[in-house]
């Protein structure tokens, strides 16, 4: 589905990403981990059109994504959330959750004034879908609250609903469980696991290792912008370079 091919990003002389390649398959949960500054968020920005890579290609279902603006990337089926929580603070949860429906249908000013059948059907379906998605993420019954008034953990859940409304086939989640208490993190984990049943692939950046190990099919490890390992959770956890990246070299020697 998603093919990231030899992507490099340099800021001035600094390489944020060097020659990173990997794939994400259908209904797969893949995670990108690595110490702070490893280039994880930059990678997300490249995939979703917020940043152009210096070199390399990104394709989704065979369509190239590089050079397209974010709303175009979303239309191709790739939607992201943000590391810093992003909601529409002044809108109700219902209004937030139906926004993404606009991804696949366009209306002109004339459509808006005429209120034809297509528009009315769309409004009804977008409303039903918004309610369904709020239920799905566990925010059912709060439709009329303002997004800005939600607790932090609830806003993170809302972000997932907002993203899902755009009907993505690949959802990129940037540290969805950061700042959450263990209960909330577990809720987020089971939510991500449920996405698979909706045939949505997930690419996850997360520092909560228990969560990552629990739900990932595959883990990609970045360190200083270089992919240093890729594989199943077990494989990665036992990789010497990964342990070194996180804990520093000499750890293995001390153990031995």
């Amino acid at each position: 589905m998603l093919e990231v091919c030899n992507v490099s990003v340099t800021f001035g002389g600094l390489a944020a990403l060097s020659d990173v390649s990997f794939n994400v398959g259908a209904s797969e949960v893949a995670s990108v981990i690595g110490p702070n500054g490893a280039g994880k968020t930059t990678l997300f920005n490249v995939i979703t059109g917020f940043r152009r890579p210096t070199r390399g290609d990104v394709a989704f279902s065979g369509q190239p994504l590089v050079g397209r603006i974010p709303s175009d990337v979303a239309r191709a089926g790739v939607v992201r959330t943000f590391q810093k929580t992003e909601v529409f603070p002044g809108l109700t949860l219902f209004e937030c959750a139906r926004m993404g429906s606009l991804c696949h249908q366009r209306f002109t000013v004339w459509d808006a004034i005429a209120r034809g059948k297509r528009l009315r059907d769309f409004e009804r379906k977008a409303g039903e879908r918004a309610r369904e998605l709020l239920d799905f993420v566990g925010l059912g019954g709060k439709e009329k609250q303002l997004a800005g008034a939600l607790s932090y953990g609830e806003q993170r859940l809302l972000e997932v609903a907002v993203g899902l409304a755009a009907d993505p086939r690949l959802l990129l989640l940037d540290e969805p469980a950061s700042g959450m208490n263990p209960d909330e993190a577990e809720r987020m984990g089971s939510l991500i696991a449920k996405l698979r049943q909706r045939s949505i692939s997930v690419l996850l950046v997360e520092h909560n290792m228990a969560l990552v190990m629990d739900i990932s099919d595959r883990i990609i490890v970045l360190h200083h912008g270089v992919k240093i390992a890729e594989g199943t959770p077990d494989h990665v956890a036992n990789d010497r370079r990964v342990v070194e990246a996180y804990l520093g070299s000499g750890w293995g020697d001390a153990q031995g």
Binding site: I69, S71, A74, T81, E86, P89, G90, V162, A166
Partner: peptide, 16 residues
Amino acid sequence: LAVRENETLGESVGVS
């Protein structure tokens, strides 16, 4: 409203 509230988020869910 998406433009007013958070255009980055709007863009990321396909609202130009």
